[in-house]
Amino acid sequence: MQTLLDIIGGILLVSGTTFLMLGGLGLVRMPDIFNRIQAGTKATTLGTLLTLAGIGFMHPEWSVKLLLIGLFLLFTNPLSSHVLARSAERSGVDKTPKTRIDAFAEDHGDPS
């Protein structure tokens, strides 16, 4: 029983860190700031949640505190990426030439 839980936990752990690695890869490959925020911070959020779940399977006595860390990340991560994106948009950071539409700049004039 214990080993079965450990193996489920280990598989969750590996899938979580795979998402962490994909987030890092996105951070390296994406062309501009907004896409980097998207690829970087979101993939790592899911990666961390999966890792927390995996460790929860391995150490069930820690699950309340792990749940607390997970909820905390779930509530703070979107806020920090939103604040960063807003600050980048307001200070007129250049976007990749692939960008199709920019409704914000249309409504507010070009900030740069």
């Binding site: 962490l20 700031i33 980097r36 970087g40 990666g47 961390t48 792990l66 860390i69 991560n77 960063l84």
Partner: peptide
């Protein structure tokens, strides 16, 4: 700053591991 944020999240995972 974004890279720093991502590094922080990875570090949290590493601390828990």
């Amino acid at each position: 700053v974004i890279a720093f944020d991502v590094m922080t999240i990875i570090t949290i995972t590493c601390i828990i591991m």
